[in-house]
């Protein structure tokens, strides 16, 4: 039997080189390395397999693995780019990059559209919008009358559905967001600017000198 003394780090499945991920996203190499520390922690929280499962995502956000939330489900599904039910490191970094304060607004607008296009028809349909409003009211224990919900949805369609065909397409969505920038406020996480401060342990594991 040989004695192997390797310093090579064991990476999680779906690991990609920080230099590659940094070149394709809004993150620096150091930030990608810090995100790897976070990713390892999240991906081992319930099922120790180096991949983020929906339960782990929910647990991180709500401290409750069974708490159902329509919007967390949608965000997880969009993070799961390969659509295999789990989020690997590459998917995690590429998806979080959209939430970076420096990410292009066009990416944020496109991501929000996909989020709201629940059934992925390429349009935000009126019944999808109503379903999301009802879900939000339900999860917040807020009560609004059916008539009032209808009025709000109608008003939104009057403003956003400029072509008047009863659904919001990507072009209409973009125009609507540019008129109402607060609609993509959720697509920016200021925290991502400080990710290297939040996870300083990446410095110990860094294999790439950061030229930035």
């Amino acid at each position: 039997m040989g004695c192997f003394s390797s310093k090579k780090t064991k990476y999680t499945p779906g690991y990609e080189e920080p230099t590659v991920l940094a070149s394709e996203t809004s993150f620096s190499v150091s930030e990608v390395e810090a995100l790897y520390e976070l990713f390892k922690k999240l991906s081992r929280s319930i099922i120790d397999d180096g991949l983020i499962h929906k339960e782990e995502f929910q647990f991180a956000l709500f401290r409750n693995r069974n708490k159902k939330n329509l919007f967390v489900d949608r965000i997880f599904d969009l993070f799961d780019i390969k659509r295999n039910g789990v989020v690997d490191f590459g998917e995690f970094v590429r998806s979080l990059s959209i939430f970076h304060p420096d990410a292009p607004v066009s990416e944020k607008i496109a991501f929000a559209f996909k989020l709201y296009d629940l059934r992925q028809t390429g349009f935000i349909e009126r019944d999808e919008l109503k379903e999301m409003v009802v879900a939000l009211l339900h999860e917040s224990d807020l009560i609004l009358s059916e008539d009032y919900v209808e009025t709000i949805v109608d008003k939104t369609y009057t403003d956003a559905d400029t072509k008047g065909d009863g659904r919001i397409d990507q072009e209409e969505w973009k125009e609507f967001v540019l008129k109402n920038p607060s609609l993509i406020k959720n697509m920016t996480l200021p925290y991502l600017k400080d990710i290297t401060l939040a996870f300083p342990s990446f410095v110990l594991n860094s294999e790439v000198p950061d030229s930035e």
Partner: peptide
């Protein structure tokens, strides 16, 4: 006012990903 349905939806805590970064 100018409240629209998307403003209401955006109030969901499901959008707040900052929980991912909090120490467990």
């Amino acid at each position: 006012g100018n409240l629209n349905a998307f403003d209401i939806i955006s109030l969901s805590p499901g959008f707040d990903l900052s929980g991912l970064f909090e120490e467990k």
